[in-house]
């Protein structure tokens, strides 16, 4: 997957968690949680969906790397390069 495809994937997962999520003014460098009103329970869903869809096991200590859309792409790109 390319960096852009990964970002789309993340947005698709978030939309699935919260169908009213508003991406219009999303800043890709800022934390997703604050901008989209997500809490830590919702955040776990992103990790679980990545595991379900792509068999990715993301260790808990790496969760901070998924904070913003851009950091997600950076962190996931090597892991999803063949996906």
């Amino acid at each position: 997957m390319t960096s852009d495809e990964i970002k789309d994937l993340i947005l698709e997962i978030i939309e699935d968690i919260d169908d009213e999520a508003d991406f219009a003014s999303l800043d890709a460098d800022q934390p997703l949680r604050d901008q989209l009103d997500l809490d830590s329970m919702d955040f776990l869903d992103i990790v679980m969906e990545l595991r379900k869809r792509h068999k990715l096991q993301i260790p808990e200590e790496d969760y901070p790397q998924l904070a913003s859309l851009n950091s997600c792409a950076t962190y996931l790109e090597p892991l999803l390069k063949d996906a």
């Binding site: 919260d18 169908d19 009213e20 809490d39 329970m41 919702d42 869903d45």
Partner: peptide
């Protein structure tokens, strides 16, 4: 009220 316990619970269970 997205962050309210009731709505958070329904979201966690994926119940619209």
């Amino acid at each position: 009220e997205k962050k309210a316990p009731l709505n958070r619970l329904l979201r966690q269970l994926k119940l619209p």
